[in-house]
Every structure is written in C-alpha cells, then in structure tokens.
C-alpha cells in the first residue's frame, strides 16, 4: 500500500495575484535576489510606500529572530521556521512571519501576521475589516479584547459599588469587629435611650486597660488582639442580659449596667473584673499580663444628666484610678473635676 503522494510529485498550485491578495493580504513574493515581485494590499498599506516592486525586502523590514538576516539565501535557510520581524514604518511592533521557497530557485514567498501586538498594529496602520482575510482571527481577537475590556469595566463598577456599600454598612454598624462587643455608636444610642426615661437607674463604668501598650509593643499586634478578645470575654461574662459592653477605643471599654445603681454591687463587680483581667493569658507560648483601671458614675448623682456628661464623669473617675496607681476602681465625685 503506497499513498498517492508517494507516487505523484508535490503538485503545484497556480493562483492569480488577485486570489493571493484575498487569501493572504500580508504576503510578499520575492525574487532570488530578495527583491519584491509583488505584495498583498495590507502589506503595502503597512510599509506605506506606493512603489515597492523591485525594491529589496531588507529595506522595508528587519528580521529579529531566529537571527538577524540581510540576504535572501540566509532568509531561505530559515524556511518553515517562525520568524519575528519588524517593519521599518513601526519598528516597535513585532510581527510574525514564515518564508517558503518557490519552485526551481525562483525566489521565495513570505506570509506575515500581526502576532500579539495586533491591537497596536491595527491602530498604527489604521487597518480595517477589509484588510484581513476572513480566515485570519485577528479581527476576532480585537473583538474579544474590546468585549473583555467592557466586561472588566462592568466588574470594576460592581466592585466599586459594593465597596461603597461596605463602607456605608461599616459606618452604620453597631458592633466592634475585633471583639464582637458593641461599638461607641451603639453605646451612645443605648445611653440616649436609657436617659430618655427620667426614672431610669443605672451605673456607667469606663475601663481602660493598663500595660496593654506594652503587650502590643513587645509581643506584637496579634498578641494585643488576643488580649482584647480575652478582655471582651471576661467583660461579657460579668454583665447581665440587658447590660451593654462596648469597646470605645483601642483599649477602652464602657459598661452600662441597667436597673442597677448600687455602689457596693458595682464596686464588687469592678474589683472582680480587675482581678480576673490581671490573671495572665498565654498567646503562642508567650505570657500576656495586663490590668485595668475603672471609673464609675451612677444615675443617682444626677437630676437631668446628658450622655456627654455621664461619659465625661466616668472618664474623670477612671483617671483618678490611674492617678492612684492603676488597677483601681473609683466612683465619680464632683471634687475629681479638674481645676
């Protein structure tokens, strides 16, 4: 069994110039000396010269890979290989090509495509749909490039809208994300609601951690975060349902005890909190030691207090605790007021 191709010589095809132009608008037909015999319409458009017939191909383009070549025999040696070349009209754009020999040493035939710089090439030479053969997928690539630019634009818009919504949600959030406690906004709202009832009885505690900065600085932020989560757990376990615990700053907490203005009870709670927080915790093998200073004010001290006044008075009591040597609990009294 022998295939017909083994018997018959490689058959030759004759094509008119017009047919070549349509099939391969980027072809160049070269004489044995490397002169241009004819060239496709898109190639002519790209070299921007009306009269190229008879000129040397090496005056119009440079071969970059596999190697620099300036004579036809050297070019012919690269027959069938993938060529990387540039036209002198746009030396920054690398094109792709292939060359084959014509029968009987009558010259060479080269075909070119735009390669990966297709979009820049189309812009550079103002190419249109008519400059490409329907078999050339460059136009599909352009289409795809434009379509995917559109869809990524849409995706980016979606991401931006989601990000804006996330920021709004965060601004409206009532929870401190690190500890899961209430945040300052939630505490302000809860206090305002409590104050709207003139009969309400409550205690307001302001707590600040002692030595927390030292933990953060010496053991790292992860250890600091671990301590804050631990503190949140302790605080939550010491309050009743209906009381509110908020983290209002880096290591500052506010506790609102509802229906409770008993100084003895609140002092016992504060002392127990300090004791429990002073018990060291271990994070990744490292021991974290902190303590806490607390200041408390009570509804019974006021006739018609404001949120700001309550917070400020609890804060002053807290600083009195700090001044007395930390790890203490102090009730507000008017003589704590500065000045």
């Amino acid at each position: 069994m022998t295939s017909p191709q083994h018997i018959l010589p490689d058959p030759l095809v004759g094509l008119s110039g017009a047919a070549l132009d349509r099939l391969m608008p980027l072809h160049v037909w070269l004489s044995p000396k490397g002169q241009i015999v004819r060239a496709g319409p898109t190639f002519r458009k790209m070299v921007r010269e009306a009269d190229i017939i008879g000129g040397s191909i090496f005056d119009l383009m440079k071969l970059k890979r596999p190697r620099l070549v300036s004579k036809l025999p050297d070019l012919m040696a690269l027959q069938g290989q993938r060529l990387t070349l540039m036209l002198n009209t746009a030396p920054h754009l690398t094109l792709r090509g292939m060359v084959v020999a014509l029968p009987g040493d009558s010259g060479a035939f080269m075909n070119i495509s735009l390669g990966v710089s297709f979009a820049e090439a189309v812009a550079e030479w103002h190419l249109t749909l008519r400059d490409f053969s329907p078999c050339d997928q460059t136009v599909d690539l352009l289409y795809l490039r434009e379509a995917s630019a559109l869809t990524s634009h849409e995706s980016r818009m979606l991401t931006e809208r989601l990000e804006a919504a996330r920021i709004v949600a965060e601004q409206q959030a009532l929870t401190d994300t690190l500890t899961g406690l209430a945040n300052r906004r939630a505490m302000d709202t809860a206090l305002a609601r409590t104050l709207s009832n003139p009969q309400a009885r409550y205690g307001l505690m302001h707590m600040d951690l002692d030595y927390f900065k030292r933990v953060n600085d010496t053991l790292g932020h992860a250890a600091g975060d671990h301590v804050l989560a631990h503190v949140a757990k302790v605080l939550r376990s010491e309050v009743r349902r209906g009381d509110i615990v908020a983290r209002v700053g880096g290591d500052e907490f506010v506790l609102l005890f509802r229906d409770c203005d008993d100084p003895d009870l609140l002092d016992r709670i504060a002392q127990r909190l300090i004791r429990r927080l002073e018990q060291p915790t271990v994070f990744e093998g490292k021991t974290c030691r902190i303590s806490a200073s607390i200041g408390t004010t009570l509804s019974s001290y006021y006739t018609k207090p404001t949120v700001d006044q309550l917070l400020s008075d609890a804060d002053q009591a807290l600083y009195a605790s700090k001044n007395r040597g930390r790890a203490r609990h102090t009730f507000y009294t008017p003589d704590l007021a500065p000045g």
Partner: peptide
Amino acid sequence: TFELDAQM
C-alpha cells in the same frame, strides 16, 4: 463608519 481600532 467603523474603525477596528477603538481609539479612532
């Protein structure tokens, strides 16, 4: 008209 190059 239709230009292949979107910038045109």
